[in-house]
Amino acid sequence: MMENGRFQRQYVREPARRVFAAEFRDADHQMRGDEKDEKSPTYVLLPTGELCNRIFIVGTLTEKQKQGEQNVIYRARISDPTGTFFIMAGSYQPEAMAQIAKIEPPNFVAVVGKPNVYERDDGQKFVSVRAESVTIVDKETRDLWILETARRTLDRIKGSGQNQDLAANHYRRDPKTYKQMVQEALISL
């Protein structure tokens, strides 16, 4: 039953992709969905061949840091069985910032956020996540995330398509690397 008075919109929300830290850290290619359209959303290309505009991660918040006086930014490290994610939340993400401020490490957290590739002064690229929300969760949610992320990653490795070709071309990595990563994650459970 449709709720009365609800505005019918044709908005398609970008799904939050599931990815392990070890694979995410290797991603260094960011592109627009439509190169000719400046308003098109940007996507980070994962080495296993997925374009992601949003990701969902569950891991342990191990460290957090407040930076700046006037424009406060919180940075935090979230670790999973394969590595570490770097997340941040600034004044444009007030909800996530307030949540990080409240949570004391170590704690299991679920993070929804937007990935971005940055280039450092020395030309090296690194990827981080601008958090939209951060919530404390329990160990079971973390375990569910490892299982689900393993499943999605294996499906991407097995899959084929335009994005897979794009990734194979750009990253030139042996898919065994990521199978190994999935195995490690599963064994850690």
Partner: peptide
């Protein structure tokens, strides 16, 4: 809730 069977299945697949 967690289905532990999924883990075993994926390990076999690998």
């Amino acid at each position: 809730s967690l289905k532990t069977g999924d883990k075993a299945l994926m390990l076999v697949e690998l």
